[in-house]
Simulated scan of single mutants.
Amino acid sequence: MTDWPELYRVLVGQTLGGIVWMPISSDTPQLAAEMQMSAFSFSGAAHVRFANNAFVQLSWQQKGDRFVLATGSEAVWVSHALDRLQAQGDRWLQLIGSTLDSVELFTLPDDHDRHTVAAKHNTSAGSFWIGVGGADFVGDHDDLWVGVDCDPPNRAGVVSLGIVS
């Protein structure tokens, strides 16, 4: 299981080089149509690259009877199962070249094992979320919810696990 604070500790202070959405092929047309929006969901992974060639690839993984946030190495996708689309829209593109200042990790209130379901990335140019969820929520679901400079509609229903800075 990922040690999220340790994973992000080495990325804080780094410059964002790019964000790539990696949907399953059946979600690609819908995602392509929604990429200008500030928040959307899809099934697949998100690849956040830094200028120093470091990266974090986030997806979902089933853990017991729950879906939780996972790194790309934990979420096993068959080769070539995911398409790749560069993040689009002014709000997403403004993040490229910014510095990652901190990352806040979240869990669900009824998860006694405190699995991470979302990460809010705070940068020098704004913030963005990547978490498991559906079209309008972060939580126990086998898709990703992503949003830039906005919180998920159910923000009050998730619990902070702390901030890595």
Rank of each mutant, 00 (worst) to 15 (best):
M1P: 04
M1T: 08
D3Q: 12
P5K: 09
P5R: 06
E6K: 15
L7S: 10
L7M: 08
V10W: 10
G13K: 08
G13F: 09
Q14Y: 01
T15Q: 15
L16G: 06
G18W: 03
G18R: 10
I19S: 03
M22W: 01
P23G: 04
S25L: 11
S26K: 09
D27S: 12
Q30V: 11
Q30G: 04
L31G: 04
A32T: 10
A33D: 12
Q36P: 06
S38C: 10
F40I: 07
S41K: 01
F42G: 06
A45D: 06
H47W: 13
A51H: 04
N53R: 14
N53F: 13
A54H: 12
F55K: 03
Q61M: 14
Q62D: 06
K63A: 14
D65W: 01
F67G: 05
F67H: 12
A70I: 07
G72E: 06
G72D: 05
E74Y: 06
A75F: 03
A75R: 07
S79P: 13
S79N: 12
L82W: 03
L82R: 05
L85A: 11
D90E: 14
D90T: 14
W92K: 01
L93C: 10
L95R: 10
I96E: 12
I96Q: 10
G97T: 09
G97A: 12
D101V: 06
V103G: 01
E104C: 07
L108V: 05
L108W: 04
P109A: 11
D110S: 09
D110P: 01
H112W: 00
R114N: 14
R114Q: 14
T116Q: 05
V117S: 00
S124T: 13
G126W: 07
W129P: 05
V132W: 00
G134V: 07
A135E: 14
A135W: 07
F137H: 14
F137V: 04
V138W: 01
V138F: 03
D140Y: 03
L144P: 01
L144M: 09
W145I: 02
W145P: 02
V146A: 13
D149Y: 02
D149K: 00
C150K: 08
C150Q: 12
C150I: 08
D151R: 08
P152I: 12
R155K: 13
A156K: 13
A156S: 15
L161H: 00
